[in-house]
Design a protein around this nucleic acid. Structure first.
Lengths: 204, 204, 204, 204
DNA sequence: CATGAATGAGCCTTCATTCAT
DNA sequence: TATGAATGAAGGCTCATTCAT
């Protein structure tokens, strides 16, 4: 007899995760009713539990799925780009664009931070840790090339991530997502100027 | 049904708010038990309800009390300072310092954003709106003085607030608050360089 | 030192009873809030307890006060009347008139029956027992005089009381009290015909 | 949120209603604890809520179920009977008999009147309205046949219902139900004499 | 495997009652 | 004596989780 984690239908799994994002984002973690998620996914409540174990793990899987998508979006956006400044700009825009397209997902991020602070390695930070290497490398390269100021690379990367995070969090409230793109562009612009050795300041 | 009636003992009110911050920060909104808050405050459960009406309003009052303190801290830190750059630096540092001293309160901010997204005017944003005029003015002045680039003032202010917010949110997880001061300083440094017309880049 | 049942201000007592009727009638026993009664009476909650001991006893005192008034109304209405038929008719009309003027009080009666069924000697029945002698005597007299059928007097008295009670209970719902007088008259008419030896049937 | 969804086990539903009558009748509406009802019914508290939504609706359903039984009892008792007098007598006796067999249910009636006065169409009156046509017709027929006095039919029907109601309400307190049959018979007797054109008074 | 009816722990909230002032 | 702030027991209701079908 195989363990409980037997064969699972990937489509069903996706349907549950999709419903999950919506319901969690709309109702919060405490406010979300697993039954509602099951209904929206078109499966029985028991199936949700079979696939994800419990509400908490379902939520975490939802957050993880979102982060995976975000990660992919960004990596795709910067794939093949050589110029450090352009890379940073594009990754920032991709970040913003992702949340503009999936505003629900900002809630998930917030929720995770709010409900599971510290109790688990925060998905957002896990992914940041995983992917920071890419950005670290870009910034290091820029410093080496004399394009960027001689910053603490780790801190500079964090600042970028925090700026983006803060921007989507306050920028995704209600239908305000329309202005999110603009807000991100301005934020990225300031950030880039902030790390450039000789920003083309006057030009802007 | 009294709503927020009568003479209330300010000490008791404070005790409840203090317990409130701790319990909400540690357990989340849904996870917090009003009885626990009452116990920690050394009052009966009924008293909490007498003072704050219901759990939600207790939470909101908690958030508001925190924001009031934050606001005061920042205004005090920049009081009398003339130089725009210095004002920005100090307000950023005051922001960071506040959350370093009251790390619990970051959780309250997050929680509010998470639980009441949209349903109420977010305390954080209300205070931002209320106080942004100060920063707007500083930036405008800097632009007029030729110190800052010709930015969209509103966006620049937002970027600053978002950067700080993002920094404390990711910087206040678990005992990491030790490094929060450093993170804030780096973030502020990048921000200031990002808006200066001619940053003393090489000097850093 | 005198016992707790010390000096009491009769006006205060009346004020409390008056408020009591309204609040209990409107909110039911469980739904009534002693604080509201105290407020309406213009006294402190503690005073209500000082005067009546507890909610239950307050309610019972309220019911008793009402019954006392009803009793007085009826006795006054039949005072000096000799004719048995007329006496019955008048007592019935006085009963109806009382509840038409104090519709709130029907609720008290119902409530008492509903909340304290059996647990206490029902005020309504206590008063019925106390006053039935009067009606019993009238009916006995009528039988002796050959005016009324040879009925079981006790049962006949009960039937009269039950008929009146049933009529006000269903007749006092909502603003229907306007028709209560009519309903009582019709009920009394049928009752009297029902006990008369030779009703002047055709005349009606 | 399901309201009264899905396939429900009729046996379970009945068990809950049965427990409901007992507990409400014994404890009153406010005094009844839904958990006790659940326990007596041999189901979980959640099941009660699943089946009936909330305490109030459970109570109303209980009242309705009782009225349905009462209605059936009476209709069965008068089925096929032609004589108006006999029909009235039988329906009165059936009414009494029903409450003699289910004395608990009188409490439900009282409770409903007490707790929900006006807030809902009183079940008792709803059923009265629904079934009054039957009695109205009988009395009309009697009047047409010259058997009954020329009464206001509507009022006469009401008087009958009120008399019966008053009788069971005061007759069903505690173990007094033994005498209820007798009380009803006497009441019905007086009523019938009260509406007959020429009651066979002397014969009784 | 899938389902959803059943469960009961958990928690918010109310309000009768007390008692310090 | 009067007050009303404080208390905490009590109970309605929800919803995560289980498990019989």
């Amino acid at each position: 007899m195989p363990v409980a984690t037997a064969v699972q239908d990937p489509e069903k799994r996706q349907a549950i995760l999709k419903a999950s994002i919506e319901v969690f984002a709309q109702q919060g973690f405490g406010g979300a009713d697993v039954e509602v998620i099951a209904d929206r996914a078109g499966v029985g409540k028991g199936t949700v539990y079979r696939y994800f174990g419990n509400k908490r793990d379902l939520f975490l899987a939802t957050a993880d799925a979102g982060m995976r998508m975000l990660e992919a979006s960004i990596l795709e956006a910067i794939d093949g780009v050589e110029d450090p400044v352009e890379t940073i700009r594009r990754s920032g825009n991709a970040y913003g664009e992702f949340f503009r397209k999936h505003p629900r997902f900002v809630e998930i991020l917030i929720l995770e931070r709010a409900e599971f602070r510290g109790s688990i390695p925060d998905t957002h930070l896990v992914y940041r840790a995983k992917n920071r290497g890419v950005l670290d490398e870009i910034i290091k390269q820029g410093i080496r090339d004399g394009v960027f100021r001689n910053l603490d690379v780790h801190e500079a990367t964090n600042a970028f991530a925090n700026l983006l995070f803060g921007t989507v969090v306050t920028g995704c409230i209600e239908g305000a997502s329309g202005k999110l793109g603009q807000a991100i562009e301005n934020a990225v612009d300031i950030y880039i100027h902030g790390i450039l050795i000789r920003p083309k300041a006057e030009a802007t």
